[in-house]
């Protein structure tokens, strides 16, 4: 499923224009960047409460399909700017991580 379809289906908000055509093939949830670096796989939608600039580098290195910020947490402008430049999709959801994982599982299977 494309990121833009996921956004529509789960009533998320796209915070970037970039990356909306990326294919979501899995889900990974973690906030410890070292763990994410080795655990997040290509095509994963990465759920994290971290919104500082460096998450964009991590998402790019992991070939994540997108970053999902849960619980309606705001992402700073410089992060979104860098995401746009790098072609990384950042989307926001009002849902918590558990509910997001559960709904994404239903949606992807």
């Amino acid at each position: 499923m494309k990121v833009k379809e996921m956004v529509k289906n789960l009533d998320m908000e796209a915070l970037t224009d970039a990356g909306m055509e990326n294919e979501v093939t899995g889900v990974y949830a973690c906030d410890l960047l070292s763990r994410v670096m080795s655990g997040c796989q290509e095509g994963d939608a990465w759920i994290t409460v971290q919104t500082h600039l460096n998450v964009i580098a991590v998402a790019e290195l992991d070939d994540a399909a997108c970053i999902i910020v849960p619980e309606g947490i705001a992402a700073p402008a410089d992060t979104l700017e860098k995401a746009e430049e790098t072609g990384i999709a950042v989307v926001s959801s009002q849902l918590g991580t558990y509910e997001l994982c559960w709904r994404l599982h239903e949606l992807l299977s």
Partner: peptide
Amino acid sequence: KMGFGAGMGLPNIKKN
């Protein structure tokens, strides 16, 4: 708090 400092960097380097 920013998600760094898990103490996994050097072990990850060794592994990879």
